[in-house]
Every structure is written in C-alpha cells, then in structure tokens.
C-alpha cells in the first residue's frame, strides 16, 4: 500500500511541527524517516496513523483519501517508542487484544497470534507478562501486536532507541527480515542516521518540520542537497571549511583542491573523512593525532585552522608526521554559505 502525503502541515499552538510535507512512501518498501530530535517525525507518523489531525493537507493510502478517517479504520499497525505493552496482560493477551476488537472467533485469533509469535520469534514467551521480558523481546511483542491485524502499513516510532547498542544492531536486522517476509509498507522513524541508512530502502531527511531530501540512502549520502543533510549523515561527520572559488579553482586558505566551472564566490566546502586519499601530488599536512582501529586509521590534522579528520588505510600512514593528501573532485561538496544549498556546476 503506497502512502502519499500532500502538503501535510501540523501546527500546535505556537510551533509548526510539520510544515507542508509532500512525500510518497512506496508500496512494500522499508522507508526511514530521519531527522534530529524535535524535527516533527513523530508528529508526521501520528498524523499518518490518525492519532493526530493535520492542520492542513491530505493523506492518501493508495488512492483513498484517509485524512479524515479514524485511526482504527485506516488499517495500520503502530509500534510506540516505549512499546506501550499493556503491563497487566500476558504476551498472548497483548497480541490478541486488537483481534478481540475485531470480534474474530477465538480459534482464529489464537491461530493468528501463534503465527505472529512465530514470525517474530517469541513462541516460548506467550505466557509471560511484559515486565518479565527483556527490551528486545518487548520490542518483538510490540511488532507482533502491530502486525497481527494484517495492517496495510506498519509504522514504527523510534523502535530501537530504548535498546542497548548490541541489541539495537540485532533488532534492526530483525525488523528488516520481518519487513522482507511480510512485504508490508513500513515507515521507520529514527534520529540515528546509521540505523536508517543501514536498513532502509529509502530515507527521508527532515529538519524543523521540513523535508530536506529524500532518496536511496547511498545517493543521499553521496549527493547531499544541502549543508544540513551533509552534516547529519555520516559518522564521523563531514569536515567543513570556509573557502572560496576563484578563477575556477576551489581554494581553502592557500591550498588548491581542484577545478570547477562555478562563478567566483565564497563557499562552504564539505569533505567526508573517508574521501581523503594519500597521494604524492597532494597537499601536505602535519598530523597532530592518530587513532588506529583495525584496517583504518583516523588521522587528525589542522587544515586552515580547522581540526580535520581523515580516514585512511593503515598501510598508507607512515611514521613521519607529515602526509600528502588529495580529494577527488566529485567528492568535494560545495555549499552556499548563506542558504546552505549545494552549488552545482
């Protein structure tokens, strides 16, 4: 089921939490809604679920306008950030609860519950209460409860943020697997860019209620449309420098990085740490610090007064504290210093 938002806006008394958002969530895909805390992701998700009424705009499920439909009529499954499992019910009762509302026969409800439990892998936990489960197990119960109604769309609000680091890795693969197996359109809200990048078919980056960029994770990563997106994606974060274009050359301080067709102007230059390459014809920098993790080494140096990080193959780092670096032209991102937009050639 494709979900389409048209000019969706939500205004609380003073803040505009979501501002004129128009995006499409393709059918059968796992789509990550990504952005810093407070940017309006949950609000968007709750509007899609029907728990919040939009101030303006429309929501389509396929060809149906569901803007005014009550939540229970939309056919959605929703997983809350803290799971919202009913503490007084067993796992089985929790999963069955939505089915009881649908007045299904007990036999059928039980069968479906078992089926879901198998899917998320909590078969042996059915008689426990939520308090007796670990965070990851609670998470799976919540997903099972959301899926048991066979919803058209699955909505997940920061599903991994309450888990510890290792469980997070494991559970996100699990979510990916479940999505693949069921083929259900899934919208996945998170503030962790790594999480979104690693499992999404498509990401939508939001900031301050506005959609900044959408697309396939790798494309968005390689071609950030503005400074915000470039800074928000990637870990360690992108290095940025105040530079300028003069006579078709990209210049930081007195170092020339490459050529461009753009007009002369001041620019913000972004270079990801992994895009620096060791090369004899590069510019020379003096290393201030090193940290080696396995095959890669992070090299710290000062470039035109800015503390800069570069990720380099360990073999290429010599013992001397000077190194020559170079960046490929297509890896240099140029942004307008005022608006932050990407400058294209």
């Amino acid at each position: 089921m494709e979900v389409r938002l048209e000019g969706l806006t939500k205004q609380f008394t003073e803040t505009i939490a979501v501002d004129n958002v128009s995006v499409t969530f393709e059918s059968g895909k796992l789509i990550g809604l990504l952005g810093p805390s407070g940017c309006g992701k949950s609000t968007t998700l709750f509007m899609i679920s029907g728990l919040l009424k939009p101030t303006k705009g429309k929501i389509y499920f396929g060809n149906d306008d569901v803007t005014n439909l009550a939540p229970e009529k939309r056919g959605i499954g929703l997983v809350f950030q803290n799971y919202a499992l009913y503490p007084h019910m067993t796992v089985q009762q929790n999963i069955m609860f939505p089915l009881e509302n649908l007045k299904l026969s007990r036999q059928e409800a039980l069968e479906r519950t078992k089926e879901m439990a198998t899917l998320v892998g909590i078969n042996e936990l059915l008689d426990r209460k939520p308090a007796q489960l670990s965070g990851g197990q609670q998470q799976r119960v919540a997903i099972a409860r959301a899926l048991v109604k066979k919803p058209r769309v699955l909505l997940l609000d920061e599903p991994l943020s309450n888990l510890d680091a290792r469980l997070r890795l494991q559970t996100r693969e699990e979510i990916r697997r479940i999505q693949r197996e069921t083929g259900i359109t899934t919208i996945f809200v998170t503030h962790d860019q790594e999480e979104a990048m690693s499992i999404s078919d498509k990401i939508i980056v939001m900031s301050k209620g506005l959609v900044q960029q959408e697309g396939i994770p790798q494309v968005v990563y390689n071609k950030p449309i503005n400074l915000f997106v470039s800074k928000f994606l990637g870990n360690p974060p992108i290095n940025t420098f105040d530079g300028k274009i003069s006579n078709g050359k990209i210049i930081i301080g007195d170092i020339e990085l490459g050529k461009t067709n753009c007009n002369d102007q001041n620019v913000v230059i972004g270079i990801r740490p992994e895009d620096f390459k060791v090369a004899e014809d590069g510019f020379e920098v003096s290393i201030t610090d090193l940290s080696r993790i396995g095959r890669d080494t992070t090299v710290y140096f000062n470039l035109n007064g800015i503390e800069t990080r570069a990720l380099i193959n360990s073999e290429e780092v010599s013992t001397v504290n000077k190194i020559k670096l170079k960046v490929k032209r297509e890896k240099i991102h140029l942004f307008n210093p005022e608006a932050g937009d990407c400058i294209n050639e």
Binding site: T55, K56, G57, N68, L69
Partner: peptide, 16 residues
C-alpha cells in the same frame, strides 16, 4: 492574534 488557517476538510468531519 496569530491567524491559523484551518482548511475545513469536507464530508465525515461534520459528523465526527
């Protein structure tokens, strides 16, 4: 007064 423009959405809404 801060003007908030509410788009009156049609059908159903009246019932609700």
């Amino acid at each position: 007064r801060v003007k908030i423009k509410f788009v009156e959405t049609e059908f159903e809404k009246k019932d609700i």
